[in-house]
Every structure is written in C-alpha cells, then in structure tokens.
C-alpha cells in the first residue's frame, strides 16, 4: 500500500514537473548563452595557455622523476622477487576475477548524481552573476526570476525523488 502510494506520488510529481523542468532547461540555456557570449569576448587563448603550460610542466616533472632512478639506481631481479606480494603466501589465482556488484552500483549512482550536480552549476552561477538570470530577465528572454528559482528547486526535488527511490531499493546498504 505504502509502496503503491509512493509510486503514484513519484509518478505525478514527475509528470507535473515535466513542463517546469523544460522551462528550467530553457532558463539555464539562456543563462549559459549570455555567459558564453562574455567568455567569447574575452581572449580565450590568453587564459587557457597558462593552464596548458602548467599541465605540460607537471607532466614533465613527473616523467623526469620516473626516469631519474633508471639512470642512477641498481637493477637486479629474480623469479621470487617478481612474484605478487601477498604476505608470503603463494598467489592462488589471477586477481582479475569477478568482484562484488555493489561497487558497480556505487559507480552508477555516482554517475547519476554527479551529472545532476553538473546541471546545477550553470544555474548556481547564473543566479547571481550580472550576465546571468538578471540579464535574461532584463532582455525579456525570461518573464521573471521566480520561474528560474522554481525550476532549480524542482530539479533538486527530482534529484531527491531519485535519491529516496535508491535508498528504498537498498542501493546504499552495504552488507
């Protein structure tokens, strides 16, 4: 009975919010479009170049650190030394076998929530940025701030519905 009620509630929440949900998409699209315009105007290469330089230098430092001991350190090997270290036991079989499916469940759940989180970033930035929702309202692309706010909250509500479902299904139970 409770499950049926929960299902019905979930269904109707999802159904009725679908229109508002697409409104939210529109809003975040608009906000991103106006933000994007700003980024395009500022010189992108000047901001990206230091980042690329940093990545290259960091990679060079790590490669250099790995190469350094090859030049100065001794190299001696043997059959026993090359065995896997398992506290002195002879290894029984290969490691890459089947493992607990719950790790997979965690990965999938993470993916879902992380992507939902990523959708919230544009909303969060646009909500107070001068080029964000306020600009969209001023340009007449959006009727009011309240719509964007409601859209964001409904999106969070949908996340919560999915979260509650996962909890009830025992995805987070680890035993």
């Amino acid at each position: 009975m409770v499950r049926k009620a929960a299902f019905l509630v979930t269904y109707f929440v999802t159904f009725f919010t679908k229109s508002l949900y697409s409104a939210f998409y529109l809003v975040s699209d608009l906000a991103f479009a106006s933000l994007h315009l700003q980024i395009a105007i500022s010189k992108p290469m000047d901001t990206i170049l230091p980042v690329l330089l940093f990545v290259v230098i960091a990679a060079a430092v790590s490669v250099g650190l790995i190469i350094l001991p090859r030049l100065v350190a001794p190299r001696r090997s043997g059959a026993v030394k090359e065995m896997p270290y398992e506290s002195g036991m002879d290894p029984i079989h290969d490691t890459r076998r089947r493992f607990d499916v719950r790790f997979h469940l965690v990965a999938v759940t993470f993916l879902v929530f992380d992507v939902e989180l990523l959708f919230l970033y544009p909303w969060a930035v646009a909500s107070r940025s001068p080029a964000g929702i306020d600009a969209a309202v001023a340009d007449g692309m959006l009727s009011s701030r309240g719509l964007a706010f409601a859209g964001g909250l409904i999106f969070i509500l949908l996340v919560v519905v999915g979260f509650a479902y996962d909890w009830r299904k025992g995805v987070f139970r680890w035993r």
Binding site: P84, T95, R96, F99, V106, A107
Partner: peptide, 19 residues
C-alpha cells in the same frame, strides 16, 4: 598491480572517492 591487496584497495578507494 595484479595483486589482491592492490585490487581490493583500488576498488575500495575508487568507491570511496566517487561517493
């Protein structure tokens, strides 16, 4: 690593980090 300790540690660690 192909080592049971390493494998279990890697699994646990990745589950923890993503969670």
């Amino acid at each position: 690593s192909n080592n049971k300790y390493g494998f279990l540690g890697g699994l646990r660690s990745s589950a923890q980090l993503v969670a």
